[in-house]
Amino acid sequence: MAREDFIAVAADDWYQRRRQDAEGRFFLGVAEQGPRKGAGGSTRQGIYALTAAGKLLAYRNAGQNPDVMREVITDAHRTWKSLPESERKPGTVQIGDHGPVDARFTRMPPENGLIVRVSARLLDRGADGGFKDAACETGRGDEASRDHLWITEAEWKSLVPASPRAGGKVPVPVGLAARIARFHLVDHTRGEPNFWSAEEVRLNQLSLIMEEVGPTRITFRVEGAVLLTTDADFAKAQRGFDARVSGWLEFDRERKAFTRFDLVAVGDHWGRGTYTGPARPGRTPLGLAFELTEGKSPAERVAPQAARDVSGYFAAGPRN
């Protein structure tokens, strides 16, 4: 029904409620018709059904509950059908151009950059010492969560030496290594995560080794380890992640493009975030998987969570 009978759109309320442009004003006008008016600048999150002209048809703050989403869609469709045809007929309502966009609250992937999908999943240790799916009783916490890592053109180009040789090591740009550690080695399985400050990065070793150098392709092996803790004393830290990083990258020398950017970070995580309620007790395994995307669909182009502070995101060096 959502696919056939509605035009579906998803947005981050943090941006939508702040932007001062035509889209922001339109959204506030719709939200004002519902119960969640965002007093004091607070959240207006929820599921809205509305007309193109801006009439609110239904609203619920449902989080990610599919049953509530289904109810909203069904109720809204009934209300929509009850509207006069003059409000529903294709082409009756005219929507002009957007006009100037509030760039402070609009994010676009870096030009010619890489978009890497980052998935997080709670894990358990199996009897064989390997990892397996975690049994999680909190909501749908046993499912993978997602975010995106953005890498600039200058950064990915710097990973490819002019004269590559098998066995050679390539330094990872400090800013990129810090961005990965601080903003992407986080537990976002239960919602908006806390990121790591520069001081909380106790160890961040990332090595890129040219494993195979052929006429058409370079294969890189990635090895590393991170220690991210809220306190310099490992034992006292309220939140932390002690993980090993491994992976494989592939660079197509003819296309001059990365075709693979697979990383895994896995290790013990502990502690809860500001907005992410009960965490599993103790230190338990968390896994993060990185994978290159083509960035073609709107969903793949959604900004990294940490890019709300976009200048901080791209300048995530050790002292920033």
């Binding site: 889209e23 929820g46 509305l50 193109a52 048809l57 957007h98 908006e192 907005y275």
Partner: peptide, 27 residues
Amino acid sequence: LWEARQKAAREGKPILLWEMDGHPLGC
């Protein structure tokens, strides 16, 4: 949302807006 408005008006459909703190299609 603006693109959704334009498409909805063109096709004569309502809009379903999923709005969260943290992008529903992201984190």
